[in-house]
Simulated assay, not measured.
Amino acid sequence: MDINQFNENSSGRLVVGKINREKITKLTGVTFIEEEVFIYPGAIKHINRNHPLVWNQYKDELPSILLNPDYIGQNPKVPNSVELYKFISNYLLLAIKLDPSGYVFVSSFYVLDNAEYKIKKRLASGRVQVYE
């Protein structure tokens, strides 16, 4: 998918998909007001710089990851954030955050190294749970 195929609103944010707000709130306690999820062009640059090839290889999967991840969790150091985990050909971690003004945006997107170990550890600690 070409980045220009995403719906762009007037602020330069790109719409990449929607979340199930009620389900995320039920599983994590984080309340999102909006269902649409945005990404800024600067975040795409960050992803491409720090996680080469992830954006180009997996950006078409964003709507599916947002609506149907395998696991969901929270980074205890980042308030009002949710981590979505999805296995495609690797485990991907898509981090979304709630902006103080109410919209939801992608903050990072990368292949989770040593994923099986990390997910197992995070499941045991309660940081992550199955998205059911």
Rank of each mutant, 00 (worst) to 15 (best):
V15N: 05
K120M: 07
L112M: 15
R49W: 10
S11E: 15
P41S: 15
S101W: 10
K18S: 09
A95Y: 00
I39D: 05
G42F: 05
S11M: 08
H51Y: 02
L53M: 10
V37S: 09
Y58D: 11
S107A: 11
L112V: 15
P76F: 01
D99Y: 10
H51P: 01
N20D: 12
L66P: 03
Y71T: 06
L53N: 14
N114L: 07
D60K: 10
V54I: 10
K77N: 14
L93E: 03
I65P: 00
L66F: 13
H51Q: 02
N114E: 12
S89D: 11
P63T: 09
L92S: 12
R122D: 11
F6V: 01
V16N: 07
I96C: 01
A95R: 04
K118D: 11
H51L: 01
L62G: 02
I44H: 13
F32G: 00
F87M: 15
D99L: 07
H46C: 08
M1F: 10
I44Q: 06
K26E: 15
Y40M: 15
I3P: 05
Y71H: 08
M1H: 11
S107P: 02
S107L: 04
P69R: 00
I24W: 03
V128K: 01
I65Q: 01
K26W: 02
E22S: 12
L14F: 08
T31V: 14
V78A: 14
L62Y: 02
K120H: 11
V111M: 12
Y58W: 14
E61D: 14
P79A: 10
Y91S: 03
S11C: 06
K18R: 11
R13V: 03
P76Y: 01
N4E: 08
L112Y: 09
Y40W: 07
K18D: 12
